[in-house]
Design a protein around this nucleic acid. Structure first.
Lengths: 234, 234
DNA sequence: TAATAATGACTGACTAGTCAGTCATTATAT
DNA sequence: ATATAATGACTGACTAGTCAGTCATTATTA
């Protein structure tokens, strides 16, 4: 860890981003719900700043002073929205996961050839995870998960458990339709996503030394995989 | 992070494991080299303690007071062997890697059918990495690597770069021999090891909720993989 | 006894979390 | 409409505690 003297990181500071001051002409709306909206917006701002900070320094290394600076607020304000550092971290993971789970559940019921579903998922993963801050969430889980059993459990229930249930359902359907003949993936659904994990880890660790085309990797993976499992048509 | 008050962790303290005091009757040996030996042994003890501590708490979370306690020495002693915390971490990775690299290099020149080599490597990985503290080194690299570019680069040069060179050599040999017909793995050697990475990450993160038989996973992986790439014998 | 190794109390920089006080906004009274 | 009061979001200086790294002292060895 660059034990350098810590830079005072003025970065990304939208200089005192003002209080929760309304900017737009007030539409028909009770004062109460306007405040609720503003609180929600500020909460989001803190979470966004926290993602930057935690992704950059890890849980222990992250400083709430810097989260506050990134969000353009005072440190005390964070504690009006989150009980403590750990709760902030937990809520960060939780909030990032909820939209993702929906995507997973949706995949279960797609009614297309398995091969097509897989190719679409590969694209979606490259676009929606590797191409966004979500990859940082995955990385944070990998890096910090062991030290936060509660969060790890929550993550397990929300992501791999659901994702693997979806994989199993899709594989079963593929077998019933006669598209594929091998049920290994029902036993080890991990085998379908493992190159995706490699892509997440590789990126930002070795990418500088040997760039990796994640989407091509996933495509190659599925090409090999389907050669192995699909009905042979010689 | 269990923000509990930090337990004073008396754990694993081999109660004052004595100074560098010789225990055994002195054999024929110059005083100089005896000292060198003892220094080396103490160095190892510190590194072992450091592995425990870093693996448990991560780089930022690790306390050198605890490393010292685990090693049964005083904190100041650590500084007689390592310049600072970061150097200790770096040397930990470095020392754990050197024996491992030899294994990788050895694999290149094995002269057996590719399938057999792969099965052996799967077993070796399960035994020598997943079954030992080495998996903690891999995990540490995954977790902390981004924050230590120098160490990440070193790791890259010593492990994936060499390992993938070996994979490429083996694949080429397999093709020349007519054992396999697909060169995807030359382009993406990551595909051969990705389930191993999954196994490392899964273990100690989700293992409690859904145990994973790593060796079975790797065997299933190679079975599928070879179905896809080996010469078809219908 | 001299030289070297080890110790552990200590320092100083750093940070999670607190809280008394400020001030923009909203509600109420005139 | 204007003045006054109430609200509660926000602030930032402060506390209490942590921990990497130092060094004067003590122990061991030759």
């Amino acid at each position: 860890m660059p034990s350098k003297v810590r830079k005072v990181s003025k970065e990304a500071v939208p200089a005192r981003s003002a209080r929760l001051t309304r900017g737009r002409a007030a539409p028909r709306k009770g004062a109460k719900e306007k405040w609720a909206e503003r609180r929600a917006a500020r909460r989001e701002a803190i979470l966004a700043a926290a993602l930057d900070e935690f992704a950059e320094r890890g849980f222990e290394g992250a400083r709430l002073d810097d989260v506050a600076r990134r969000a353009g607020i005072a440190k005390g304000t964070i504690y009006l929205y989150f009980a403590d550092k750990e709760t902030l971290f937990q809520e960060l993971i939780r909030s990032a996961l909820s939209p993702f789970v929906a995507t997973i559940e949706a995949a279960r019921s797609i009614d297309l050839p398995l091969r097509v579903v897989c190719d679409r998922l590969a694209g979606a993963f490259a676009r929606e995870v590797l191409g966004t801050r979500r990859k940082d969430i995955v990385r944070l889980m990998i890096s910090e998960g062991r030290r936060f059993p509660k969060i790890a459990k929550f993550y397990y229930e929300e992501v791999p458990k659901r994702a693997f249930a979806a994989v199993r359902a899709l594989v079963r359907k593929g077998i019933e339709r006669g598209e594929i003949v091998d049920d290994t993936l029902e036993k080890f659904p991990q085998l379908i996503i493992s190159p995706a994990l490699v892509a997440v880890v590789w990126d930002g660790l070795f990418d500088k030394y040997e760039p990796l085309d994640a989407e091509a990797l996933l495509r190659a993976h599925f090409t090999l995989l389907f050669k192995a499992i699909e009905r042979r048509t010689p």
